[in-house]
Amino acid sequence: MIRLKELTKVYKDFDLNISMEIRPGSVCGLIGKNGAGKSTTIKAILGLIRPTSGSIEVLGKDPKDFTAKDREAIGACLADSGFSRLLRLEDVVCILKKLYKDFDEAQFRKLCKEQGLPADKKLGDYSTGMKAKLRVLTAICHKAKLLILDEPTAGLDVMARTDILDMLRAYMAEDEERSMLISSHISSDLEGLCDEIYMIGDGRLLLHEDTDVLLGSYGIIKLSREDYEKVDKSYLVSAKKQPYGYDCLTNEKQFYMENYPSAAIENSDIDSIILLMLGGEKVAAGEEVKR
């Protein structure tokens, strides 16, 4: 569905260098702190920016060669960009009807009603949550094969975020061939939605792992300085100095549970993995970070 091969994009104060692949039927999360390069990656995939080098293939084509018809197979949602604030929901329906051959008007109207999007208000008067919901509904209303969503839940309360994630889950459940790339800096949103996670920081890929593996095999080991010196570092991904010693991220929690039964080992969530990946140092004897 999507293949990025050594994609680079160089700006004055930032450069992106990333490779990734999203297979048909998979839901991929792109996670990283603000300014990590998530939006730049998504813009490159959507053909909104030109890469400095490397190649991009989306649905078998370079995005720069996309025709209008090619774009019908993609549902996109950008964090801070949408229809003009002067338009109303009825205007949006009429526009989408003319843009997409497979626009499902009845379903779109039904979902808009369910999500409480007012038909008589201008989009400029919508709340942040309403605007975000409309952006997502616009992306999922035309039977797209591939959804590309940049921070669809940013700045929303927990209820609005849940609504959006539920809509996405329902959409993906309708057809197994559909794929989705979703970026977020809210890791809990991705944990329950994605099959695999790409973690990026400062424009580089830090980690690519199945979500199940990330949540099941990864763990945090809290070690004193003396224990840290002695411990087998074969499965330590990174370590961060703490007042009491070290917090170590491992990708083989079970190994340390079995061989160091007295060590304090915690389950890791994506946030704590990010903290250790970005704030810690790579452990020399650890395994390759990449899968």
């Binding site: 959507l46 053909g47 025709t67 993609i74 949408g82 843009l99 997409y100």
Partner: peptide, 21 residues
């Protein structure tokens, strides 16, 4: 100007519209 206002252009370019179109 309306297309450009509120950063609307990136979204418009994700719709089934080519740049030439």
């Amino acid at each position: 100007s309306y297309d450009e206002y509120d950063n609307g252009m990136p979204f418009l370019m994700t719709l089934p519209v080519s740049r030439k179109g």
